[in-house]
Design a protein around this nucleic acid. Structure first.
Lengths: 215, 215
DNA sequence: GATCGCGCTAAGCGCCCGCTCACCCATCCC
DNA sequence: GGGATGGGTGAGCGGGCGCTTAGCGCGATC
């Protein structure tokens, strides 16, 4: 009832694919609760209550509380991967594509902080098989960013001595936005995205070549 | 019994000041448990068991489970602040001091990943008053790093359009090391510290001035 | 308009949580 | 040697947890 405006601030929350309606409401309630208090501190009674249902209703749509987290995590990672893939496979130089990848990835983590928090920080609460599935998605995320950086190195635009380490650092920087970003703070997701894209280009040495060309 | 080698790998864990001995063993057990499973998923029975004591023994030394987390968090933040202060107030140019600050801060997060994880990621599990106290320490941490960057801008060594935002990004980058660093992984804390110091110097535009001077 | 099936609820099971309490046993002071 | 002190234990409390089950209301079907 109070979460109807969810579609407004966030960039088109990807929960549209979840059906039926009651299952989606429960998932949305779980995302909110997990983000606020963490998975283990959230009770099934709390989730059901936020969705306006009785505790037992949850188990009609999901086998366990963990299945809720698993579904949230998979959908979230797929969305994150989709964002990076779109940026990585767009037209343009590695510099342009890296900037777009970072800024859109950061925008997602800042704007959809609620979801991103759960997706990025509750991984350990999953069981072994579910975690393994999510880790495979993470490896694809890493490969996507590493690909852009490698292309930039190959083209001479970037100067990166340690590609794997720098990829790790870039992703780490973006992901941690979900931890500290505050919706009531002074910065919009767009501003943070722009700031971070600039910082990352410096990290890969993209400014130097551009600067040298200008001189 | 199995945690006697704690002093080996880690850089002189700061728990020496905690007395008596039983209280320190409980604190150490709590750090391990909180880092592995999170605060809410850890039971007092688990903590006491790791320390080789009965569940009731915990309440002789600590009023509640939360007091354990509070103590860990305060000691950890004080140690982190101490590390940054030492680097910030050393002799040398802003470039040298920023590099030393980042590399030592990162070494602490990687080497003492167990402690750092609890310190950096379980803040929300504290009550309002305890959290407020810790947040004050965090503001001092931020001010220390911002100070170095401001000096570098003033001296012309750095080129930083957004000092507050860049400070945030630098700290975020360092802190997130505690999330992904793996002791069994390919990198030592020293290597990550060196890598990150280089990346941060690029973020503040320190390479440019040096590069320009070399040309 | 009776039947069926599905989404949902009320009630509650068994378990384990944080925490307490009555008591134990070394050590130390006199 | 007797008594106080303080770190420690075993048993257990009230309560809240994840999850189950019996049954209810209601729209679709014929």
């Amino acid at each position: 009832m109070s979460m109807a405006e969810e579609t407004a601030g966030t960039e088109a929350s990807p929960w549209g694919e979840v059906t039926p309606d009651a299952a989606r409401r429960l998932l949305l309630a779980a995302v909110e609760a997990f983000a606020e208090r963490g998975y283990h501190a959230t009770t099934t009674r709390d989730i059901a209550g936020r969705a306006g249902m009785s505790p037992a209703a949850l188990y009609i749509h999901y086998k366990t509380k963990e299945e809720l987290l698993h579904r949230i995590s998979r959908i979230g990672h797929e969305k994150a991967l989709d964002i990076l893939r779109t940026a990585a496979r767009a037209e343009g130089s590695p510099t342009e594509r890296l900037a777009e990848a970072v800024s859109s990835f950061v925008r997602w983590h800042a704007g959809g902080r609620t979801t991103a928090r759960v997706v990025q920080y509750e991984l350990d609460s999953l069981g072994p098989e579910a975690r393994a599935e999510i880790l495979a998605l993470r490896r694809q995320v890493d490969a996507e960013v590493r690909g852009i950086i490698e292309e930039g190195v190959a083209s001479g635009e970037f100067d990166v001595p340690d590609v794997r380490g720098t990829t790790l650092a870039v992703l780490s920087l973006c992901i941690d936005v979900a931890r500290w970003f505050n919706v009531d703070g002074p910065r919009t997701p767009e501003e943070v995205g722009t700031l971070y894209a600039g910082l990352v280009l410096r990290m890969v040495g993209a400014g130097e070549a551009a600067g040298a060309a200008q001189r």
